[in-house]
């Protein structure tokens, strides 16, 4: 008898809980699917519109009746897109690779070496994070134009990044601190210099962090719009991908369906990169928090 009562007592709330759980699950899925659809529909309509004919794109038909795959070939043939792609990769590969390496070198200096003024230099570097890029924007333009005589060349978007970046350096510093130091000590006793230690021992161990930062910096640099707009905005032959699609958009120089095809092409590299290195992106975001 007693057992039975206890059973009923136990089973009742359980049933309720189960029902609640089912309702909760349904609401959860409905919520996730709704948000996912709101994100996917714009992408879907972009792809569909990029495959429509020149007439149909100016109607409110959602699904194309005839598929114009030739729009994509036309983008490469008729617009500056291909040229801009080559430009973009030429501009961002040196600062991303060299800059990330320089950040690693700097991080090694802070992590392993003692030198007078280290704390002050480190503090000053971290303090620069507070300075918003906006302040630098106008005077840097003037400096590139008048002192460095760099306008009309891609140098303003290539050179500054090659010295490394503070956020990247900080990330690398955190990584080096997790590496054991005794291997380096042993190598030094064998007569290897600090530079040799970095190249032969520390940097190979840092490859995961280096690759992660290269990927993140690459996608950031590829999507950057304001910097190339300021320094290269006047010369079409120097355009990056972002500048190219913006010009197609604002000048109405290209038919809508081709503009949209160009957007799909412009979106592809970072999305493919993300699909290949999903973990790197998500971990990078949660580690550095920003940027």
């Amino acid at each position: 008898m007693k057992e039975k009562v206890a059973d009923i007592r136990r089973s009742r709330p359980k049933k309720k809980v189960r029902a609640n759980q089912v309702i909760g699950k349904i609401i959860s899925y409905a919520f996730l699917v709704a948000i996912a659809l709101l994100i996917l529909i714009p992408f879907l309509q972009l792809i569909l519109n990029s495959l429509k004919g020149p007439r149909e794109v100016e109607t409110d038909v959602f699904w194309p009746t005839e598929w114009y795959w030739s729009n994509y070939a036309a983008v490469f043939k008729e617009t500056v897109m291909l040229h801009s792609f080559l430009n973009t990769f030429m501009y961002i590969i040196p600062p991303v690779i060299v800059g990330t390496f320089m950040s690693a070198v700097c991080a090694y200096g802070f992590a392993r070496l003692k030198f007078p003024g280290k704390k002050i230099i480190f503090g000053a570097m971290m303090a620069t994070l507070v300075i918003p890029n906006i302040i630098i924007m106008v005077p840097a333009y003037v400096m590139f134009a008048n002192f460095y005589q760099w306008l009309g060349t891609p140098l303003p978007v290539v050179v500054p990044g090659m010295f490394g970046g503070t956020v990247c350096m900080f990330f690398m510093l955190q990584y080096i601190r997790t590496l054991p130091e005794d291997m380096e000590e042993a190598a030094m006793l064998d007569g290897l210099s600090r530079g040799g230690v970095f190249i032969n021992i520390v940097f190979p161990l840092m490859i995961p962090a280096f690759v992660a930062q290269v990927i993140l910096n690459f996608s950031g640099a590829y999507n950057d719009y304001l910097t190339p707009l300021l320094y290269l905005g006047n010369s079409t032959n120097l355009f990056t991908v972002q500048l190219a699609i913006n010009q197609m958009n604002s000048a109405y120089s290209v038919e809508t369906q081709k503009l949209l095809a160009a957007c799909v092409i412009a979106l592809a590299p970072t999305i493919v990169l993300f699909l290949c290195a999903q973990k790197t992106f998500t971990e990078g975001i949660t580690l550095t928090g920003i940027k």
Binding site: P42, F43, Q45, L46, S219, Y222, N223, Y225, V241, Q242, I245, N246, N249, L259, L260, C263, V264, A266, L267, T270, I271, L273, F274, F281
Partner: peptide
């Protein structure tokens, strides 16, 4: 991680 120029044109 998408280009904001492209996503803005899309929207």
């Amino acid at each position: 991680i998408c280009s904001s120029v492209a996503t803005t044109i899309m929207w």
